[in-house]
Amino acid sequence: MDNNEIWVYVELSGSRIEPTSLQLITKAKAIADGRPVVAVIPEATTVQAETIVSQYGPDKIEILVDDRFAEATDEEVSDALFQVMDKQRPNTLLFPATILGRSIAPRLQAKLQTGLTGDCLDIYFKDTLLVQVKPTYGDNIMCDIVCPDRRPQMATVRPNTFRAVQDSSATTKIEKPIFEFHKEEAASILSTKPIINSSANISDAKTVIALGRGAYSEKNVKLANQLAAKLGGMVGVSRPLTDKPEFGHDDQIGQSGNTIAPDLLINLGISGAVQYAVGIKNAKKVVSVNTDKDAPIFAQSDFAYVGDATEFLTAMLGQVR
């Protein structure tokens, strides 16, 4: 009923390969148990993403080459994928759960008339079935989902759930399946521009550098602002710093200030009083820097650096591209 292969969709933005696609190749190889892993890349002529993708050791790469893929619509991509997949249905087809992956995969799903599980946090085989572990209700509930009878078993997988590892031991076959690019008349991409991040409110910021009394100095404020600019984030403060000239109530994190939910929070010289802790409990990753190894903030952190905030900031500025 299927050809036993695990296919991974390689998402491109210009010549940038979406890291999740590479992560999925590594993951697919890890769970393959003898099943061939195939990367499928719709790309423009000049991109040649296969040279990089092959370093991650898929058994095969299927390249669909047409210059119009540089700015193809969801329908154009899913139509091309449908053509190469309809006859020889792979066992499994994985997409990154990016905006693009989550747009193309369901459109293709309808064409292939199969099941798709969105935004998975884990995938593994149980006999012939791919168990797709999906969070629901805002990550409060987990579901195991399978697609028993139809192929391919499709899933989109959340970015950065797995690590991509290069594998030079494998030999990768490159093939160019036959397909026809069907231009979609009713839709076109007029332009594609890089994003300029301009988050104005600290409660919406994706990255927050938070300064407390223990790290307050003119120099650290400057360095923190530089780092925030590099990371596309914002600088916030704990309550004691709100009466400093550089900061105000709008910058305050904590119970009587803002509740924040950044992907990354770096606390500098913040002790971690309960009023502050309330404001940061929704932060995803918390890094804390404090000279006091017993500071309560460390218990609320994923990463602890016991040391000087200036040195830490300087090192960060040196290492972050």
């Binding site: 987990m142 460390f298 090192a315």
Partner: peptide, 27 residues
């Protein structure tokens, strides 16, 4: 085509604190 085979609560993970090396660059 899809079937839900089980539903469960995610493992509650408190923050597991990793202590970084003392050298700032290494950290």
């Amino acid at each position: 085509p899809t079937k839900v085979t089980s539903v469960y609560a995610p493992e509650k993970k408190g923050r597991q604190t990793t202590t970084l090396p003392t050298d700032p660059t290494q950290a």
